[in-house]
Simulated assay, not measured.
Amino acid sequence: MTQRCIIVRHGQTEWSKSGQYTGLTDLPLTEFGVKQMERTGRSIFRDNAFIDPNNVTYIFTSPRLRARQTIDLVLETLTPEQKSKIRIVVDEDLREWEYGDYEGLLTHEIVALRKSRGLDKTVPWNIWRDGCENGETTQQIGLRLSRIIARIQNLHRKHQSEGRSSDIMVFAHGHALRYFAGLWFQKLAVEQKCNNEWERVNPDSYKDDTVPYVQLDTYRYLNDNPFFLLDAGGIGVLSYAHNSIDEPALALAGAFVPPPEEQSQHEEVRK
């Protein structure tokens, strides 16, 4: 019985190809990006069968076109019956970092802009610490990603109590998913009490009665680069140590699942 959170970055867009910061701008996938995600879907569900579609319980997605288009392409190989058993939840909390003044710019252009405004005189700009002018701070994106992690882990706890394996897939963006993974591990992040109204408010970011809202007393945010890479179209797997929802961990084997004999040997060694 395994509970996993499988994160999927959308396929290539013109701006992911060029390196431009893409937050709220709603771009479609390129022709390459479409083929890229079709291949990914065939690999993970059919050719290599890394993921059993019968274990996929939920898909959470950013509302942006590039993420939702990626879902359709990845699920193409599934039967109508298999698709019907997966609940797809569009959640505004999964949107990309709001870049504000930096939307559409390249990193060196952002650095030059900030220098022209008299910023970063002592240390270089670090988005994970400094956020974006007229966009989001690291605390703001950390709060909304903490909310969705709490909802996913709450669902995993429920599925585990019911004795079933649950793969919850998350389709979103480069910065948001790397940030998401950093928060999943807890120790990489700073914990903050929800003291202010903006930290405690329920933003009503999704519409699905089967997903309970989890009210946070604390949340986490990053203050430095977690040093994770996730290219356009990339997939990562997050899970739990010792099958404990209270011990979030990185599944270094990714989507690959070892044979039962290997798992049992590993369990004996661990014990």
Rank of each mutant, 00 (worst) to 15 (best):
P124W: 11
T138F: 00
E98H: 14
I88C: 13
E98F: 10
T107V: 12
D93Q: 08
W125N: 05
S116C: 01
N126V: 08
V89Q: 11
N134Q: 14
P80G: 02
H108N: 15
R129I: 02
L119D: 07
E96C: 10
R87L: 04
T77S: 15
P80N: 01
I110V: 15
E92W: 06
R117M: 14
G104N: 04
R95M: 12
L119A: 11
D101A: 08
G104L: 03
R117H: 09
D101P: 00
R129W: 03
R117V: 00
V90W: 00
Y99G: 05
E98C: 06
E96V: 06
W97D: 00
D130T: 09
Y102V: 04
G100D: 03
G100P: 08
L119F: 12
S116F: 00
V90F: 01
E133L: 14
V90D: 05
D91F: 01
I86A: 06
E103I: 04
T122C: 00
Q139I: 02
I88K: 15
Q82H: 07
G135A: 11
E81T: 14
L106T: 07
I127P: 15
E109H: 11
L105G: 08
Q140V: 12
L94T: 09
T138R: 07
D91R: 04
G135W: 00
